[in-house]
C-alpha cells in the first residue's frame, strides 16, 4: 500500500502548519468548556482529528516516530483512573463522591467553577486518545491484509 509514504508534498506542507492550529483549537474548546459550547467531548474529537490528519498525510511509520503510541495507550488507560481519583477526592474534601470541592471563583473567568474544568481536561484526553487508537488499529488491519481475502 502507499500507506507508508503518505501524500504529496503540498499536503505535507499544509499539514505541517495546520496541525498545530487544530491542536490549539482543540485545547481552546476543552479549556473553555464551562463558559462556551464545547467541552471535553468536542475538544477531544478535534485533537483526535489533528492526529488523524498527520497519520493520513505523512503515513503510519512517520506518525509512529512522532508519537509514542505505547505511551498514548498507557495514558488512555490511566485517564479513567484519574477521573475516579478526582471523584474520591470529592469524598475527602466535599463529603460526597464526585463533589465539586474546589473554590467556585468568579463568574465568566477561565479559572472558575471548581472541578468542572479538570473533569473536562480528563475527558478530553480520554476521548482523544481512545478514538485515535481505534483508527490507528483499523488502519493497521487494512495495511496488514493487503490484497488477499
Amino acid at each position: 500500500m502507499k500507506d507508508s509514504h503518505g501524500m504529496t508534498p503540498i499536503v505535507k506542507t499544509v499539514t505541517r502548519v495546520s496541525v498545530w492550529l487544530i491542536l490549539l483549537y482543540g485545547c481552546y474548546i476543552i479549556l473553555h468548556g464551562h463558559l462556551t459550547p464545547g467541552g471535553g467531548f468536542a475538544g477531544g474529537v478535534v485533537i483526535a482529528l489533528a492526529f488523524l490528519n498527520v497519520m493520513l498525510a505523512y503515513g503510519k511509520s512517520f506518525t509512529a516516530e512522532w508519537l509514542n503510541i505505547r505511551l498514548l495507550k498507557d495514558i488512555e488507560a490511566a485517564s479513567i483512573t484519574l477521573f475516579l481519583v478526582l471523584g474520591l477526592l470529592g469524598i475527602a474534601f466535599g463529603n460526597a463522591f464526585l463533589a465539586n470541592f474546589l473554590g467556585k471563583g468568579e463568574m465568566f473567568s477561565l479559572f472558575s467553577s471548581g472541578t468542572i474544568p479538570l473533569f473536562n481536561i480528563i475527558i478530553g484526553i480520554k476521548v482523544a486518545l481512545s478514538l485515535f487508537l481505534v483508527v490507528w488499529v483499523l488502519a493497521d488491519i487494512d495495511s496488514a491484509k493487503g490484497g488477499d481475502l
Binding site: 471523584g87 467556585k104 465568566f108 467553577s113 473533569f119
Partner: peptide, 25 residues
C-alpha cells in the same frame, strides 16, 4: 452553585457527574 456559565456542562460534570463516569466507562 457551580460557578459555570454553561449550564449543560454544570449538569454533565457536577450535578450528574456519576452519569458521566458511567458513560466514560
Amino acid at each position: 452553585e457551580t460557578g459555570a456559565a454553561n449550564i449543560v456542562a454544570s449538569i454533565v460534570l457536577d450535578y450528574r457527574a456519576y452519569d458521566t463516569m458511567g458513560e466514560v466507562t
